[in-house]
Nucleic acid binder design. Structure first.
Lengths: 127, 127
DNA sequence: CTTGACTCCGTACTGCGGTACAGGGTGTAG
DNA sequence: CTACACCCTGTACCGCAGTACGGAGTCAAG
């Protein structure tokens, strides 16, 4: 057991499914460091990190394709922080717009609720 | 030609695909007001409105299933105003949670951008 | 040595939100 | 009357992000 996790151990540790890890491998997102003679996947600490990275980026609203791009940026060159920044700014703009729209929607819903209270309206939902 | 759009006209006007309109009909989201003798769908202004509603709600991150719920609120709303209110409050809570999540996301993205500016190098992208 | 949990690979399926035919019928302009 | 664009139904397919499953091999405890 010295060093290296099996796929099941990494899955449990990362809170994902075993199948998901194999799926990520098919997408070239996360490959085991090595294999045992039996063919069993063995993941090192780098891979655990990488899985964490994937999960975090995904939680931030990036698609797996975008995550792959991020990971490739890191692999390709040392100086591409500007690229990451540019992409992230794009995402941020999207997110900010969505927040605005949702706030407008929330406002409409509150209005709707108030007019329900006023027992007047029937069919003018202002979305 | 007096009043009423064919499916192709509504599609163009609403910026969607003809197939998408038929798909919405299968989901009981948007049905034509009537049909010609030939079977051609004829959509009235109410349906145009409804399509707009669907598109807007969808752009705000609601699934088509949720959109259907909204639309049902409107249909039922002639009588059961208390019900409408309750459901709308539920939706509002959802929307508010979504806003919170997105704000957290935006915050993370801004942090990421700032640390990119701090030129920490690619290796420690803190996603 | 056997049992049971774990792993392998490949393929198929899920739900979502459409999109793309195929094989017909319709509507209208020239 | 003939083109040609449009419409009908039905079914199959797409990408995404997984999830499930079958049949076989492997590992560790008892």
């Amino acid at each position: 057991m010295g060093s290296g996790l099996t796929i099941g151990q990494l899955a449990k540790q990362g809170g994902v499914n075993v199948e998901t890890l194999r799926y990520y491998e098919r997408l070239h997102l996360l490959a085991p460091a090595t294999r045992k003679a039996s063919g069993y996947r063995i993941y090192g600490p780098t891979e655990c990190h990488r899985l964490q990275f994937i999960k975090n980026a995904q939680a931030l609203g990036f698609t797996l394709h975008e995550v792959a791009e991020f990971l490739n940026l890191r692999v390709e060159s040392t100086r591409t922080c500007g690229d990451v920044k540019r992409k992230t700014q794009g995402k941020l703009a999207q997110v900010e717009k969505k927040i605005e729209d949702l706030q407008a929607l929330a406002h409409s819903l509150r209005t709707l609720i108030r007019s329900c209270e006023a027992e007047k309206m029937t069919d003018h939902c202002p979305i």
